[in-house]
């Protein structure tokens, strides 16, 4: 059943992750996030006074600026900006800083597939680094469907091109519970909700739900990774203060 992948990963295995916080000095918060060869640098500036035009002044406004690796920004980048902005609106507590604008700048360092999920993870880490009030973390995964209708997680660029369909999914981070697996039934229904879903290519509805299931299974290691990386600094801050 297993299809061989060129880099020797199993179908559900993610590429090696790395996340570094506070990489930029002037930014209020920054993070660099990489999944395999895909690398994104994210910076947060703000909140500063005033909202953009046509935005609700009773809430905080989020502005996303996407900088591609090279060249001008085009329609694809505009779409990424819109998706990222609306995804971050979901996780941010927008009522805390009314009538302010927070800018998130995404710089693509290297694109080797799963660009948007990597950018969402990077933006989320940068927001945490900036101390922006969040409801929960957004955890993004990409899932692709091979010609034999087989789910493959976190494809790289080569695999993305060969695939029949591609699904980007964003969920909330999984809850760290002291209860054992069996008694966690209530929490699951909250966890299942999709923040963002973007698809490319034609597939059957069942295949989509299959991807959804796989994606949901993959967020646990990802959210554990994020939690570890983001907690680490908070603890070291305490030790310095103490």
């Amino acid at each position: 059943m297993d299809e061989k992948r060129e880099d020797g990963r199993s179908a559900t295995q993610l590429r090696p992750l790395s996340c570094t916080r506070s990489v930029l000095n002037r930014a209020h918060g920054s993070a660099s996030f990489s999944q395999g060869e895909t690398k994104i640098l994210a910076a947060v500036y703000g909140p500063r006074a005033g909202t953009k035009k046509n935005e609700n002044p009773e809430k905080a406004c989020i502005e996303v600026i996407w900088k591609p690796k090279s060249g001008q920004i085009g329609k694809a980048e505009k779409e990424y900006e819109m998706i990222l902005k609306r995804t971050l609106q979901n996780i941010c507590l927008l009522n805390v800083h009314p009538n302010t604008t927070t800018s998130i700048i995404i710089q693509v360092v290297n694109d080797d597939g799963s660009l948007l999920p990597c950018a969402i993870n990077a933006a989320c880490s940068a927001l945490v680094d900036a101390g922006f009030p969040l409801k929960y973390l957004a955890v993004a995964v990409s899932c692709s469907l091979s010609k034999h209708e087989y789910c493959i997680m976190d494809p790289n660029k080569l695999e993305e091109e060969k695939m029949k369909a591609l699904v980007y999914l964003v969920f909330r981070n999984s809850i760290l519970s002291v209860l054992d697996e069996g008694s966690k039934q209530e929490g699951e229904s909250i966890e299942n909700g999709i923040i963002t879903s973007v698809t490319h290519g034609v597939m059957t509805v069942n295949n989509y739900f299959q991807c959804l299931e796989q994606g949901l299974a993959a967020i646990k290691p990802l959210s554990n990774f994020l939690r570890k990386k983001l907690q680490w600094k908070a603890q070291s801050d305490v030790s310095i203060a103490g």
């Binding site: 609306r86 979901n90 299942n192 909700g193 999709i194 034609v202």
Partner: peptide, 20 residues
């Protein structure tokens, strides 16, 4: 009736499987 796209670009709410 093949799925060409299922697009949910963020927003304040979540989409549960049943809603989809």
């Amino acid at each position: 009736l093949q799925l060409v796209s299922l697009n949910k670009p963020g927003g304040p709410g979540l989409a549960q499987t049943s809603a989809i």
